[in-house]
Structures are given as structure tokens and as C-alpha cells.
Design a protein around this nucleic acid. Structure first.
Length: 652
DNA sequence: TCTGCTTACACGTTTGAACCGC
DNA sequence: AGCGGTTCAAACGTGTAAGCAG
């Protein structure tokens, strides 16, 4: 829908033709699975029937909620927060570049016997393009057109809940590229844009009824700005110090600047062949500075980091965007039909969808723009001083949108709600976060920090203290203005299990819709300062939203329509933090409350994003996928994950 | 001239095949 | 023959810097 419905140009572009199954490192395994884009363009897909908006749970989770209380922790959260405190940059290259830090996750709450598919997708944070100016990132214009949406399917998918919960789930094989013609299936992003990764857990009950439940997780500290070359030297230092592949660039490494300079000098000397190389070269790597150690240099690098751990990225709400998953593709990923079917556990009461969104908290500013950062002092005098943070880019924070779909009128609003301390101990005051980067943090301390991170990954430490749980917000889903069938249209040719009766099954391949340019419902946004009050329970967490204080709620970005907050109980300032889970269940369809009043539209320099749920689609011709599934598995016994072009089909 | 992107480069890490011993 | 451990080389990942394009 992105390419076809929203960006027709993309659908017809040359990159569409090349989209095929692709397995990384084995480009020979290209297979056409879905009809060509042109074919699908000529044949409008069946309408998508959306999941009902989930009920917002208040208070203690219900028994139903507990039953499917899927949680996800970001295990290397502390590392992410280090980068986020500076302003994470991700290199994107034509050939594709891995993310660093990677997404290391711990999943819990899954049904051990059910199968799940884990996906990673990356969505733009706003409609802005950024430039690094004055030591900070500044929005300098409108974003480029949205590129083909692709998702990365974890190579273990589908696997049982027991499998996912027994280990750390890592998406480090996922690659980012700026090549719009990429045929490797890497996730295509624009340079100098701001993105937010999302992780989706999709239940795959069996071949024909996957998608019984769905959970999406967003970790605000993982948002980043894409670059082709690092702009912020602090990010470079952090990457070099923490990425094992970049060890060569550390001070003690052979590819350090000192060593490189020495090599270059030697090279020049060899070329001249006239000047003998002596041992007195001050840049020679064989000479050491006895008083400067690697720890000192690293400490100096760390000291230059801002003392305040707050995120460099401000807290724009992550726009919910749908990930339409075509069953034809998803089932093609299931290697053993019988095995899957044997594991079916009919649970008609299980949730069918849960959406979790979150946002970075915002500073106390009404500026909707991303202004230059003040240069952080390497030796801050007052740790409590509000950080020189990025003012918020409040593209959709929070959003309130509704659609006028004749068949399913739904309302969605998204707002930050930090989890409760009881359910998310990782949000407790964390000394590690509090101290952030002491000016003279030693290498030993840093190593310990890293080790803690490793311990988290290996489960040696209590994740409750070391990990960051995904923010879970009560989020109603926005109905996607899919093409609706004409009245009296024939019913769908397939009957699905009860939990899927309210799903839509267009013929589109696995599809991540971008509705940013569709008719948008009104949105409102607000800032959620994270250092506004010492009484806020989560102020010590660098990247966590703070309580939506009424004053701050009133301090909304002027470019966004206002909303009557009193009509939204979740904005009650007295409300405690808690992680709410939204469940989609057919039985709740009839219990939907009327949509919230749409705030009056006001001029906005940042077009608000529509709130996008993760949508499940079922191919009306599932047989297409059957022969390809075992074929794929046989050809790719050692999978490293699958990339999927959600517009045209799967690429591995 | 400036900004952003591509490419070659050198280095370190990862991975898997080959080899060896039990 | 099978298994486990070690070694080694190729592939891969990384940041840097020069060069190019707009």
C-alpha cells in the first residue's frame, strides 16, 4: 500500500522490478513469490478489514491481559542510552551497513508452545530532514519521499515462544542501506533522516492462521539519525570504543589515528627514498607516551559527553504505522507445516493484536523544531542542570486521529505512558544512568559498564535491573483507510478462525503501509519534559518519558492542533505510570467507545503522522506460498534473517 | 566553496573448513 | 566412524580519508 496506494511512483520504479526473494549472501536464491507490482496495481487488493481498536486497560491487567502479557526488554539498553545521550547516528551505505548498537531483546510472556515470528522494521520519526550544525542536529527541511518499506524477519522465525524466551533475540544481521535500488532486501532509509526501529512479535499458529496475536514494541532510546559519514565525533568515539569491529581504531589499535599518521609518514618516506626513517618520529607507533594511556584517552572521550543523560533526541512520539503482513509470505517462512499445525493451541480468547508505542520525552519547549545543540561541557558544573537537549520535534506526540471508514470507524490516540515501577523495574532510578558519563570515567569503569551489558545479554544479571522494557502505551489503533468494498460485494472467499475473523486479507503481499500521506485525521501533540520536576518518578532515566504533567500538556507545540485533554483519561496527571497492554479481541468490537472529539486543525510545519497499527493481511491465494516455503528452507539452511519488501513481496 | 556521498583502504572480528587426537 | 578441540584463512564489518558530484 505504501508503494501502490501512497507512492505510486515507487511502485512503478525500477526497484520494484528487482524485488524478489533474496537471501543475504546467497543472491542466487531469487524467487518470485508474489505477482508483480504492476499486476497488483492493475488489480486493486481486497479491502483490508482492520482489527478493532484495542481497549485501553486501566488499573490492574485483567486475566485476559495477563494471559498474553507479552513483554520485551532491550538488553543492551544501557549502550543504546549512551548513544542516545549524544544523538545516535547510524551509517548507511550502498552495500548495506549493520546497525550498531544492535537490537538485543529479551522476550517474555509468550506462549511456549505457540510459534511466533519476530520482525524488525524502521519507521521515520517525522517528516524532516536534518543537518548537523553547531554541534547538534537541526531540522532543515522536509523529508524525502518515503522509500519502500522493508522489514527484517528474524532468522529464527517462526519459532516457539519457548525458543524466543530462552535466549537473547538479536537483530544484528539487519542491514541499512541508502540504495533505493537495493536488491539485497536491506532496509532502505534516507540519509539525514530520523528513524525509530520497531520490533513486532506475530503469532504464527499454523500455516493458515498466523497472526492470531501481534505485539509491537518501540524503544525510544533506539531512535537514530541516518548518515553516510558520522557527523558527531562523540558518536564516532562511542562506536569505536564499543564496537568490537572497530577495535582497530582505538588508541591502542593499529588503525588509530596515531598509527595511521605514522604509516602515512612511513609511506611518504618510502616513496621519497631519500630521508632515512629514524626512531625519533613522534608519531611512530613504536613510541609510547608514558603518561597517556588508553584509559585516559577514553576517559577524555567520555568526559566530552554530556553530563546529563538525557537523550539527544527529543521525544517525538513514534508514529504508529501499519505493517501489513501477507500470509502468503509469512506462511512461506514456516518450514514445517505439520509441526506447526501440531502445535496449534486454539485459544479463541487470545489477543489478536496489541500495539505499543512510546515516545521520547520532550524538553520544556514549545519549539517544534530541532535546533542546534549547545556544545555540551565536558565538565558540567551542575549535574542537575537541564541538558542542552534537542528541543522536541513534535510531529505526532501524541497523536489523535480517526478515520471515516464507512465500515470501521476507529479512533486512535497515542500518548506516552511510562510503565509502572512495579511492572518495569528497569525504569527505576538507575545509578548507571544517573551518573551518565562522569568527566573522568575510567576505562575500567567503562569496561565494567560494557560487561554489565554483556551480562545482560547472556542473562547473567537480572534483566529487571539492567534492561529496559519497551514502553507500553495504551494505544488505540487507527483504522486504515483501506479501499472499502462496494456495498454488496461478495464476501471473502476464505473463512478463518475466530480470532482472525476481524482481520483483513487483501491480496497484497506482506505489506507495510505508509499512511503518512493519506487523509489524516487531526492530530495533536504535546511536549513531555523529562527534567521538569524532581518529583517525577522517571526523571533519572535518560530516555524515558516523564509523567505528562498538566503544565506540560498545556505546553503543546503550537504547530499542532490542541485537544481537550480532559477528555482523555490517560492524560490525567495523577495517573500512575504503568505499562498497559491493549488487546484486540472480536468480543470487544461492540464495546468500542465513540471516537474522541477531533481537535480543530491548526497549521503545522510538521505534518502529523497517522497512527498506524500493525496490520495482518491474509493472501487470498495462500497456495502460492506453499511450494516456496520448503524450497527456501532447503536453500538457506543457515539463515541470517530475512528482509522483506512489504510492498511487493519478500526479499531474503 | 560547501555539503553530502562514494570508494578504497587497513585493521580487527567472525566464521567455517581443515586438521588432529582421542 | 564419531566427537571435540585447535588452527588458519577467507569473508565480513568497521571508521577514515580522499575524491567526486551537485
Amino acid at each position: 500500500m505504501l508503494g501502490v496506494d501512497v507512492y505510486p511512483g515507487l511502485a512503478l520504479g525500477p526497484q520494484r522490478i528487482g524485488d524478489r526473494f533474496y537471501r543475504d549472501r546467497e543472491p542466487a536464491a531469487h524467487m518470485a513469490l508474489f505477482p508483480s507490482t504492476c499486476d497488483r496495481v492493475s488489480k486493486p487488493p481486497p479491502p483490508a478489514r482492520l482489527l478493532a481498536p484495542p481497549p485501553v486497560l486501566h488499573g490492574e491487567p485483567t486475566a485476559q491481559a495477563q494471559k498474553d502479557d507479552v513483554k520485551m526488554d532491550l538488553e543492551n539498553s544501557s549502550l543504546w542510552k549512551q548513544f542516545s545521550s549524544v544523538g545516535t547516528e547510524m551509517i548507511i551505505t550502498k552495500k548495506g551497513r549493520r546497525m550498531f548498537p544492535g537490537m538485543k531483546l529479551k522476550v517474555s510472556g509468550l506462549n511456549p508452545s505457540l510459534r511466533y515470528i519476530l520482525l524488525l522494521d524502521i519507521i521515520p520519526m517525522d517528516n524532516s530532514r536534518y543537518r548537523f550544525q553547531g554541534g547538534g542536529w537541526q531540522a532543515v527541511g522536509g523529508a524525502e519521499d518515503r522509500l519502500p518499506d522493508r522489514v527484517f524477519i528474524h532468522p529464527d522465525s517462526p519459532a516457539t515462544g519457548a525458543h524466543w524466551q530462552s535466549r537473547t533475540v538479536s537483530f544484528h544481521y539487519a542491514k541499512l542501506t541508502n540504495n533505493t535500488l537495493d536488491t539485497h532486501g536491506h532496509i532502505i532509509l534516507h540519509s539525514l533522516h530520523r528513524y525509530q526501529p520497531r520490533v513486532h512479535v506475530i503469532e504464527a499458529r499454523d500455516m493458515l492462521s498466523w497472526g492470531g496475536g501481534q505485539h509491537s514494541f518501540v524503544f525510544p532510546e533506539t531512535q537514530f539519525i541516518t548518515v553516510t559519514a558520522y557527523q558527531n565525533s562523540k558518536i564516532t568515539e562511542l562506536k569505536i570504543s564499543s564496537n568490537p569491529f572497530a577495535k582497530g581504531f582505538r588508541e591502542e589499535g593499529m588503525n588509530s589515528k596515531k598509527q595511521r599518521d605514522a604509516r602515512q609518514k612511513r609511506k611518504l618516506a618510502d616513496m621519497s627514498e631519500s630521508v632515512p626513517i629514524g626512531n625519533c618520529d613522534p608519531c611512530d607507533s613504536t613510541q609510547h607516551h608514558p603518561n597517556i594511556t588508553g584509559a585516559d584517552l577514553q576517559a577524555l572521550a567520555l568526559a566530552s559527553l554530556p553530563a546529563d543523560p538525557s537523550c539527544r533526541f527529543q521525544d517525538t512520539l513514534v508514529p504508529e504505522q501499519p505493517l501489513d503482513l501477507d500470509e502468503a509470505f509469512m506462511t512461506s517462512q514456516i518450514p514445517d507445516i505439520s509441526e506447526v499445525t501440531n502445535t496449534i493451541i486454539e485459544s479463541s480468547d487470545s489477543l489478536s493484536e496489541a500495539a505499543f508505542t512510546t515516545s521520547f520525552q520532550a524538553t520544556q519547549t514549545s519549539s517544534p523544531s530541532f535546533v542546534p545543540l549547545p556544545q555540551p561541557s565536558p565538565f558540567p558544573s551542575d549535574p542537575s542542570e537541564p541538558p542542552g537537549d534537542y528541543p522536541a520535534v513534535l510531529s505526532s506526540s501524541p497523536t489523535l486521529s480517526s478515520t471515516t471508514s464507512p465500515s470501521l470507524q476507529q479512533t486512535a490516540f497515542t500518548f506516552p505512558t511510562p510503565p509502572s515501577s512495579s511492572s518495569s523495574p528497569s525504569y527505576q532510578a538507575n545509578p548507571e544512568l544517573d551518573t551518565s558519563f562522569p568527566p573522568c570515567q575510567s576505562q575500567e569503569q567503562m569496561s565494567l559498564l560494557m560487561q554489565q551489558d554483556d551480562n545482560i545479554s547472556t542473562g547473567r544479571n537480572s534483566p529487571a535491573k539492567q534492561t529496559s522494557e519497551a514502553f507500553i502505551y495504551p494505544t488505540n489503533l487507527t483504522s486504515i483507510p483501506e479501499p472499502q468494498p462496494a456495498l454488496g460485494a461478495p464476501p471473502a472467499p476464505f473463512a478463518f478462525p475466530a480470532p482472525m475473523q476481524n482481520l483483513s486479507f487483501p491480496s497484497q503481499a506482506l505489506h507495510l503501509s505508509n499512511l503518512a500521506q493519506q487523509n489524516q485525521a487531526a492530530s495533536f501533540s504535546a511536549t513531555f519534559p523529562h527534567h521538569s520536576s524532581s518529583s517525577l518518578p522517571f526523571q533519572t532515566s535518560s530516555c524515558f518519558p516523564s509523567t505528562p504533567h498538566p503544565q506540560n500538556l498545556n505546553n503543546m507545540a503550537p504547530s499542532y492542533p490542541s485537544v481537550e485533554l480532559g477528555g482523555i483519561p490517560q492524560f490525567s496527571p495523577a495517573g500512575p505510570y504503568r505499562s498497559d497492554v491493549m488487546l484486540h479481541h472480536p468480543s470487544l468490537l461492540q464495546q468500542r467507545e465513540p471516537p474522541l472529539p477531533i481537535p480543530p486543525a491548526t497549521p503545522s510545519i510538521y505534518p502529523p503522522f497517522t497512527s498506524y497499527p500493525l496490520r495482518l493481511h491474509q493472501d487470498p491465494h495462500p497456495s502460492l506460498s506453499i511450494p516456496l516455503r520448503p524450497l527456501y528452507r532447503h536453500q538457506h539452511p543457515h539463515t541470517q534473517g530475512s528482509f522483506l519488501d512489504v510492498n511487493t513481496g519478500a526479499v531474503f
